[in-house]
Simulated scan of single mutants.
Amino acid sequence: MITIKTLNKWANNHTYLPINMLRIALGIFLFFKGIDFMTNSAMLVELFKPMQNMAGGMLIIHYVAPAHLIGGILIATGLLTRWAIMAQIPIIIGAVVINFKGEMNSMNLTLALITLFACAFFLFYGSGKSSLDYYFKMQQ
C-alpha cells in the first residue's frame, strides 16, 4: 500500500497534459474496441479460433467486450485506473499471443503492443491530477 501512495505522489507531481491526453485516448480506444467486439461478435469468435480448444474459451469471449467497455470508460475518466488496467492486461496479452498462434497480422500486433505498453505505463503511473481519482481524493 505504501508503494501505491508513493507512486501516486510522484505521478501527481509530474502530471503533464500529453500524458493525460494519452490516458484519455487509451480509454476511448478501448471503449470503441469493446463496442466493435459487441457489434461484430463473429469477428471476436474468429479471432479466438486458434484458442478454441482452451478451457473456458466461451467465458473469455464474454469477458472481453464488457471489460473493454467498462475499463475504457474508467480509464478515460481516471476513475480506478489501475484496477481497470489490471483487467485489460490479460486481454491485451491474449491479443499479442493470438497474432503468433494464428495468422500474423502486423497491424494488429503493432496496435496490441502499443496498447500493452501504454497500459503498463499507466499501471505504474496511475491516473494523474486530471482524473476523478484525484478529484475525489481532494474532496475528502
Rank of each mutant, 00 (worst) to 15 (best):
K33P: 00
N108V: 07
M107V: 11
T77H: 00
N105F: 01
N13R: 15
L116S: 04
A120E: 08
K9W: 14
N20P: 03
W10H: 13
K101P: 00
L26F: 11
A65H: 05
D133S: 07
L111G: 02
T15I: 03
G56L: 05
K5G: 11
Q88V: 06
E46C: 00
V97M: 13
A55W: 02
I92Q: 06
A65Q: 09
V96M: 12
K9E: 15
S130C: 02
L44K: 04
G27L: 10
F100H: 09
I28Y: 01
G128Y: 02
T6I: 15
Q140H: 11
I89F: 10
G78L: 08
I98S: 12
G57D: 03
L116F: 14
T6Y: 15
P90C: 12
S131E: 01
F117I: 09
I85N: 05
I85F: 07
T115K: 00
I91S: 02
F32M: 13
M21T: 09
A42E: 13
N105E: 01
R23N: 06
I85D: 04
L79W: 09
Y134N: 10
W10L: 15
I28G: 03
Y16G: 00
F124N: 09
F37G: 02
W10T: 14
K137T: 04
I19C: 02
P50N: 12
T115A: 09
W10Q: 14
S106N: 01
T77Y: 06
L26N: 09
A112C: 11
L111E: 05
I98P: 00
T115L: 08
S127Y: 06
P50M: 10
F37P: 00
Q52M: 15
R82K: 14
